[in-house]
Amino acid sequence: MASYVVRCGTMRTLHVMQARLSYARGMRVIARTARGLEAGEVLSEADERVLKQMDSPPGGTIQREMTEEDESELAHLAAKSVEEADKCFEAIQALELPMDLVDIERIFGGERMVIYYLSESRVDFRELVKRLANEFQTRVEMRQIGVRDEAKLLADYGDCGKPVCCNTHLMKMPPVSMKMAKLQKATLDPNKISGRCGRLKCCLRYEYDIYEEHRKMLPKIGVDVVTANGRGRVLNQELLSRQLLVQMEDNRRLMVHADDVLSVIKRPKTGSSSSSVNPQVELQEKNKDRHSADNE
Rank of each mutant, 00 (worst) to 15 (best):
Y208T: 11
P58G: 04
G195H: 08
R215A: 14
K162E: 13
K185C: 13
Q144M: 15
L21H: 12
N134Y: 11
V164A: 06
R253P: 05
K87V: 04
K179M: 08
T67L: 01
S119Q: 02
I115S: 02
E120T: 09
M217R: 13
G198P: 08
R64A: 14
N251M: 11
K269V: 03
V42K: 07
G230P: 08
Q247N: 10
L239T: 08
E90H: 02
K87E: 10
E48H: 04
S3V: 09
G271A: 03
A78P: 02
T10V: 11
L283H: 00
V102P: 01
D159Y: 06
R106E: 03
P219V: 01
E249F: 12
E296G: 10
I107R: 04
T67D: 10
E90F: 03
P175K: 15
A75E: 03
K80C: 15
K162G: 05
C202P: 13
C166P: 08
Q247V: 13
D159C: 07
L262P: 00
K152S: 11
C160M: 02
N287E: 01
M171L: 09
E38G: 02
S272G: 00
K182Y: 09
L21I: 08
V223P: 03
D86V: 07
V246M: 06
G110L: 00
D100A: 08
F125D: 10
G161Y: 02
R32A: 09
M173Y: 13
K172G: 06
K269F: 03
Y208M: 09
L132F: 12
T138Y: 10
I145G: 03
L283E: 01
I210C: 13
E65W: 06
A85D: 02
A155N: 07
K80G: 15
I210E: 10
P58F: 06
L188W: 10
Q63V: 10
L244K: 05
P174L: 05
L218F: 04
G158R: 04
